[in-house]
């Protein structure tokens, strides 16, 4: 059974590419431009969540970090690996502060994306 990946990224081009690549790799991908997707975490039970740090709905660079922190501090979701994606050079610090499992700095290599997702869903 294919692993299920949540992709939350507000840039449509990036989102579509990620979805395409991951689907090519055999993942089942659910994607959204907003955090609303997370409301279905309980029902969809994703195996991994890719979270863009900068979401236009939040207007703050703490947004992805904030969502990650909520997921990781919620016992119901804390087991789900979270990967924060950001263009800022201190993405590592942001990911750590948001208790995320890993991070991906834009612009990333497609292979890097695939490796990370594979690693956390193995």
């Amino acid at each position: 059974m294919a692993k299920k990946v949540f992709v939350i990224e507000d840039d449509r081009d990036i989102r579509e590419t990620i979805v395409y690549v991951l689907e090519e790799e055999g993942f089942e991908v659910l994607s959204s431009e907003s955090s609303k997707l997370l409301r279905s975490v309980d029902t969809e039970k994703p195996d991994i969540i890719l979270l863009d740090n900068w979401l236009t709905e939040w207007k703050s660079d703490a947004s992805g970090q904030q969502l990650s922190k909520e997921l990781k501090t919620n016992p119901a979701t804390s087991h789900i690996p979270v990967i924060i994606i950001s263009a800022v050079s201190n993405v590592k610090e942001i990911a750590e502060a948001g208790l995320a499992d890993s991070y991906l700095m834009k612009p990333f290599d497609v292979s890097e994306l695939v490796n990370l997702v594979n690693k956390f869903t193995a």
Partner: peptide, 27 residues
């Protein structure tokens, strides 16, 4: 920091999709 983050985001977002497209097309 907000400004730098904004600039990073605005400049790197197009590069990110461009790079991803290129790499998909390379494959």
């Amino acid at each position: 920091n907000d400004f730098i983050a904004m600039v990073s985001h605005e400049l790197k977002t197009p590069l990110t999709s461009l790079k991803a497209y290129i790499q998909v097309l390379q494959a």
